[in-house]
């Protein structure tokens, strides 16, 4: 029963994806650019971003004192994704001189506030943990 439901669900997933592929090739002319973006997303994540995170993790374990490691990890999980999310607004790529209501915040200041709160929280948690004399988290 479970087995046949799994097969049916899997087949439904394949059908939905094929429908999307059909929509794409029949309605969009610039397929080369679409393919470039699809492939670039995977390559940028798997070969660049993930590798950077591995290297940063290794550096943190080697350089950071034990009580700081867990707070650093939490701070990184919080600030890393939100920084990636903020790339379009930090770069202000879509800004237009004729529309002052678009991208109308100081995003650098906003990001610095988030980074500042994260830093204070990481330092605070590190101090608390080292005073307790515990490096485990």
């Amino acid at each position: 029963m479970i087995r046949s439901m799994r097969w049916a669900t899997g087949a439904a997933g394949v059908a939905l994806a094929l429908y999307g592929g059909w929509l794409l090739v029949t309605r969009e002319d610039r397929l080369g650019d679409v393919a470039l973006w699809l492939v670039a997303g995977v390559v940028l994540h798997d070969a660049v971003l993930a590798a950077i995170v591995v290297v940063l993790g290794a550096l943190a374990v080697r350089l950071a004192p034990a009580p700081a490691r867990a707070p650093l990890a939490v701070g990184f999980v919080m600030l890393g994704p939100v920084t990636l999310l903020a790339v379009p607004v930090l770069g202000r790529f879509g800004a237009r001189a004729d529309n002052p209501t678009l991208l109308d915040r100081d995003y650098t200041a906003g990001w610095l506030v988030l980074a500042g709160i994260t830093t204070v929280a990481v330092v605070g948690a590190t101090l608390v943990r080292s005073r307790r004399g515990s490096g485990k988290g």
Partner: peptide, 29 residues
């Protein structure tokens, strides 16, 4: 953020790839 660093139609492509994405999610589950 009204940033369009590509040549394809956003609406057409975002809609079509959404079906590919949800189909692969269902298959993956």
């Amino acid at each position: 953020a009204q940033w369009y660093p590509w040549s394809f139609s956003f609406r057409t492509t975002h809609y079509a790839v959404a079906w590919i994405a949800i189909g692969s999610v269902v298959l993956h589950v």
